[in-house]
């Protein structure tokens, strides 16, 4: 976890708050505006409702491995963004940017992912413009 590069973006806070709330739950659990970059090895990718879950082993500077869990929205929500059932495979080395939870657990929600093949996927959650009149 120590190797996780912690970047606090003041601008991002406002930006993220302006996005529509997630499909399943709101942002109460998340430290909105905080961003953590994680480079690690995929253990499992659960492409499932109500939220997809990515299990990622991240090695710290001291060599200790911490398992992070990064969630995305439901499959049908993140499908148009480009996420698929096989986007992450066990053993893949990927970089994932997450918004961590508030209580310090190694968990967060996916803001961006760089897949093993170099493909970049955007936020794994709701997006889009507000409803039109």
């Amino acid at each position: 976890m120590k190797s996780a590069r912690l970047v606090v973006l003041a601008v991002a806070a406002g930006l993220l708050l302006s996005l529509p709330l997630s499909a399943h739950h709101g942002g109460t659990a998340f430290d909105v505006g905080k961003v953590v970059d994680l480079k690690g090895t995929v253990k499992e990718w659960v492409f499932s409702n109500p939220h997809c879950l990515l299990f990622l082993d991240v090695k710290g500077e001291n060599g200790q491995v911490t398992q992070w869990i990064a969630e995305g929205q439901a499959p049908n929500v993140i499908f148009p963004v480009g996420y698929r059932k096989d986007s992450f495979k066990a053993g893949d080395v990927v970089t994932v940017t997450v918004e961590p939870v508030k209580n310090g657990q190694p968990m967060g929600r996916i803001l961006k992912a760089v897949l093993a093949n170099g493909k970049i996927l955007d936020r794994a959650s709701s997006g889009g413009a507000p409803p039109k009149p």
Partner: peptide, 8 residues
Amino acid sequence: GNSAATQG
């Protein structure tokens, strides 16, 4: 858009 009417 896909998430414009989620009404969360």
